[in-house]
Amino acid sequence: MLLFLLRRIGAGIALVWVAATLVFFLTTLTGSDPARRILGPQAGPDEIAAKTRELGLDRPVLERYWDWFTSALRGDLGASWFTNQPVSRLVADALPVSLSLVLAAIVLTAAVSIVLGVVAAVRGGWLDSLLQGVSIVAFAVPNFLIGMVLALVFAVQLGIFPALGYTPFGEDPGRWLASITLPAVALAIGAIATVATQTRGSMIDVLQQDYVRTLRSRGLPTRSVLLKHALRNAAPASLTVLSLQFIALISGAVVIEKVFGLNGLGERATAAAGQGDVPLVLGIVVLAVVVVVAVNLLLDLALGWLNPKVRLA
């Protein structure tokens, strides 16, 4: 088990490195001049040359890469080209917003999907047909469209939730929850459609297994057969889909942050990419991939707990 974990951690670190390297070289591909972009069109050639030297852009690409890589290893992600603020602080400021949003969405997705998937699999009938129909449509609606409609109805018309902005948890937990509710729901609906459908399918598969009949032959209460035994055996497939949805939620959050005016990593990433602020973009890439790796690691642990055969492998 320990070896298995170490291998996964190693693979995760490799993933972070590959992603950062890939993005680093992507940003060097075009000939556009960062110093010119930073200083604006009025700057003279001397200023541009000075800025280029200051940013170290006069040096060969590989040397710059090596510099960035070695300081990143020490935890130093450099400073933004545009504001000169340390990347780590810019990223750390925005992280709670995005993390609140994505975690709330994933918790919502997991909870609702399990309930819907199990009920559809066990009850069948019209409820099942309804779930399948709704999930096809829910999957087809872009989440930012859901977000706009939710904002119109629940914020503008009914005034239950704020339409814009984020309240930090430390400031006021109640208003924090209110500020991420609509964005999280908008973000989760598509994911719920996918995960609930998967849960339904794997529950139906498990309920057809011989051991379920044997459990029933032992006279165990239906609740135990369904929720303890069947669900636990159906869970690995759902969890795998859930972890893929988590990656998708990170992407979706970028758009949702714009709809609800949340100053999260997504807003920052969009702006940084637009300006060509390479250190900030790289910092965000590293952080996003680290989060993905961490979630996948948690998933591996959960799968090992759920499935003893994996644990031994």
Partner: peptide, 19 residues
Amino acid sequence: NLLMALPAIIVLLVVLAQF
């Protein structure tokens, strides 16, 4: 597996900002 672990939007943002 590598490609699947990358949030697509980040790659798209970087590429579109560059090109």
